[in-house]
């Protein structure tokens, strides 16, 4: 699929976008957002804060990110975060289950991870209020702050899923090579 918007080239990086070009061309998300630097300027720090290191573990965050991306069928996000999920210690069976549009809970043995998968499934595919059963399981295993953080991780991912899919962003060659090597292309 071709991209409807090309990333801003390094020699054209607007003033507020330049920190993202300090080491050359950034990834396609920052590179395309650079067309509107005042949005890049607030969006990337927010995305970084939501998806980056936080109070909940990186493993939990990647479960949420990969599952939401699979359910919203974002090729860019699924492939990119498959690599991140593997780096955070998820095993192939867990990754495959999260990437599959079918039930994923059974791939996980820890109750709170199973509750999180159910929570993300509700957020990514549901409409209106969350199923009370799913809500109760989430409340049983996570504190309020954790629920907020994981919900923001999931919904921020959903925003990016649609952004990356709509703009047809391509994954890097490095990601593609890693996925091939892992048998997860």
């Amino acid at each position: 699929m071709s991209s409807i918007v090309a990333p801003v080239a390094p020699d054209q990086a607007p003033l507020l976008a330049r920190p993202y070009y300090a080491n050359g061309a950034p990834g396609p998300i920052a590179g395309t957002m650079a067309h509107v630097p005042e949005l890049l300027d607030v969006a990337m720090p927010f995305i970084g804060a939501a998806l980056g290191p936080g109070a909940v573990s990186a493993r939990l965050k990647e479960i949420a990110v990969l599952r939401a991306s699979a359910l919203l069928e974002c090729d860019y996000c699924v492939r990119s975060h498959t690599v991140v999920a593997l780096d955070e210690g998820l095993v192939h069976a867990e990754v495959r289950a999260l990437r599959d549009s079918g039930p994923a809970e059974d791939a996980f043995t820890v109750d709170r991870e199973r509750a999180l998968v159910a929570w993300v499934d509700e957020l990514a595919t549901g409409r209106g209020a969350v199923d009370p059963v799913v809500e109760a399981r989430m409340a049983e295993h996570f504190a309020a702050a954790e629920i907020v953080e994981l919900t923001l991780v999931t919904t921020t991912t959903m925003m990016l899923n649609r952004y990356c899919t709509a703009l047809g962003l391509p994954v890097s060659a490095t990601v593609a090579e890693r996925l091939s090597a892992e048998g997860l292309a």
């Binding site: 020699d11 054209q12 990086a13 607007p14 003033l15 507020l16 067309h35 630097p37 005042e38 300027d41």
Partner: peptide, 24 residues
Amino acid sequence: LDTDLLVTRATAPLSVPVAALMRA
């Protein structure tokens, strides 16, 4: 159009590009 000296796409309210340029 060259964008290397672009500050913001928004020009109104004026406080938006003013604040951005002051930062830059």
